[in-house]
Amino acid sequence: MYNTGKVIVGIIVFIIFFTIPFWLNLGKVKALPKPELPKDETKCVEDTDYMRAYHMQLLHEWRTRKIRKMQVYYMNHEGKLYIMSLQRTCMKCHTSKEKFCDRCHQVVVTHPDCWRCHIAPEEVKK
């Protein structure tokens, strides 16, 4: 092999670069934190799969309908009515922002801007 020193440095850089996820995880927590689900309620506004993937769109739709169209109620697929409100409907069951919202959002890195205007339940208590 020619230029052995340089080639070996190159191979090491290549391996380290493409195994970054392994190195960044090394010595860190094994299990991802799970969001705390409400104990006395088993059904969300829509079904769980939909909520998990599309809750941001639902909240976005609620905001538009409530603030721009002055509507109050949201009817889900089963025909049940909900008041469109993050603080009064969602957070009534999911009582903690830290233990519910943040747990997932910090794991998958999203930048929701709900709480720039809304006040988290934890802060209300303070």
């Binding site: 996820p21 995880n25 927590v29 794991v107 890195v109 801007d113």
Partner: peptide
């Protein structure tokens, strides 16, 4: 890397935020 690493390092969060800076769409 945000999918592969936990806790996610700050620089990946910043990269992610800057990349979605104009907040078009949801």
């Amino acid at each position: 890397l945000r999918f592969f690493v936990y806790p996610v390092p700050e620089w990946i969060k910043i990269l992610d935020f800057v990349d979605s800076f104009f907040q078009i769409g949801l």
